[in-house]
């Protein structure tokens, strides 16, 4: 029983070495263009979903690359797969396939399975 009125806070730091990188590796293997993202945010700016809900493919890309899978695992369901982001991406990332492959990966590794 904590009788102090406060408790230890969980660290905000991304603990890269402790994180699970299986999702990132799975996507990169199936859709190598996933690695090319430079986080410019073009995809997120044009995104149908992102205009109305908390959804950013830029953020999802970065977080998966860092092994921070929890938020992307839940967010990724929101994408409507319209494909506008592919048109925008300056690096030629097949963003639509990244989303589809990410869904596969999250399911495979049991992270917020669809």
């Amino acid at each position: 029983m904590n009788r102090f009125g406060y408790s230890l806070s969980k660290a905000r730091v991304i603990d890269y070495d402790a994180n699970n990188h299986a999702v990132a590796e799975y996507i990169a293997e199936k859709e190598p263009s996933f690695r090319l993202c430079i986080a410019c945010g073009g995809c997120a700016a044009t995104c149908t979903t992102g205009n109305f809900t908390e959804f950013s493919l830029r953020e999802i890309n970065i977080l998966i690359h860092r092994g921070e899978n929890r938020k992307p695992g839940s967010d990724i369901r929101k994408c409507m797969l319209c494909g506008k982001c592919i048109l925008v991406c300056p690096r030629g990332v097949n963003t639509r396939n990244v989303v589809i492959t990410a869904r596969e990966a999250f399911k495979k590794f049991g992270i917020n399975a669809l």
Partner: peptide, 8 residues
């Protein structure tokens, strides 16, 4: 880009 500190 993630907006959080990272330790590696």
């Amino acid at each position: 880009l993630a907006g959080r500190p990272l330790r590696i």
